[in-house]
Design a binder for these strands. Sequence first.
DNA 1: TCCAACTTGACAACCAGTTTCCATTTTTGC
DNA 2: GCAAAAATGGAAACTGGTTGTCAAGTTGGA
Lengths: 169, 169
Amino acid sequence: MTHFDEPKVPTGREAIDPSDEARAMTEIMLTVFRINGRLLEKGDALVRTLGIASAQWQVLGAVSLSGKPLSAPQIAAAMGITRQGVQKQLNRMTKKGLFEKRPNPRHERSNLYWPTPEGQRIYSEAMRRETLWAQQLAEGLPGPEIQGALDFLKKFHRRLEAPLPEEGE
Amino acid sequence: MTHFDEPKVPTGREAIDPSDEARAMTEIMLTVFRINGRLLEKGDALVRTLGIASAQWQVLGAVSLSGKPLSAPQIAAAMGITRQGVQKQLNRMTKKGLFEKRPNPRHERSNLYWPTPEGQRIYSEAMRRETLWAQQLAEGLPGPEIQGALDFLKKFHRRLEAPLPEEGE
DNA sequence: TCCAACTTGACAACCAGTTTCCATTTTTGC
DNA sequence: GCAAAAATGGAAACTGGTTGTCAAGTTGGA
């Protein structure tokens, strides 16, 4: 399938026969992509009737969990995305009345953000629905199996920090 | 942290105490998001010197693995994204000389696409690098552990098809 | 203290994908 | 064999994110 016209003399660039482990690892990557897509889709559906998308839910979560007003760059750091991306959401949600700006004692131009009562209400309800959903997804699965998968995924995530394999580029 | 002002009388909308399993399941979701981000980042880096991004690598893969020229909607179906998204990539890659259009015997306006020799070369090299990478990621992990994780993820993916928990919306 | 380095907000361009709409082609069911 | 339905390409507007640039605010070290 994947072999078009293979070179006839060794080039050091031949296709490599992957081990079973490497093959399974590749399948894990593909499955993660698929799960990610489905999680986003379902997550959006879960909060759609609250008038937010999951990106906004995430921003609400980052601030709420910190327990205190945060600046855009602080939220970005907590979420692992860029400050510009967060700023876009904050502007939109502030306009919608979900966040309020608070003066930042440590910076003249840089506001802090805290959810309005309406923002808090929406976030609480989103979390309530999420818990119900997680409960449903876990139903009937043995605790140790779930925990084992989580452990593996964390290990996998850590391994993904490693630099890519060397090439004689 | 997450408790702002709880209502004093039962509303049927109180926060729910998640089970340990639900908590772990939630953590799995968050970890999947993080892994997904890291995979995209690393995947892009892996093929960057080939002049493509991983989105284009994926399109090359969908066609190559099918073994025959495909139309844009067919590729989209194989990849699980919309035909418009695929079309954008195909247009770009055709302009770059990575795909060539073939007449579609079954449709006058709808072309089929097949990688040019250059497109094939780039895809083979991308796959070679991916195999090396997967090999590295699997290194030292017991085969059964990897296989177990894959099995869990597939099961999880299947469970994500289920409709969201009912609400008395 | 003052200057350089860093942080921040605002803005623009871009990427990868989506939805929506339109015109055309193809398929189908009667 | 024809009309209606479905598939297709193309374009535009939108989303959620990115990178890059600029100007202004803040911080830290000689």
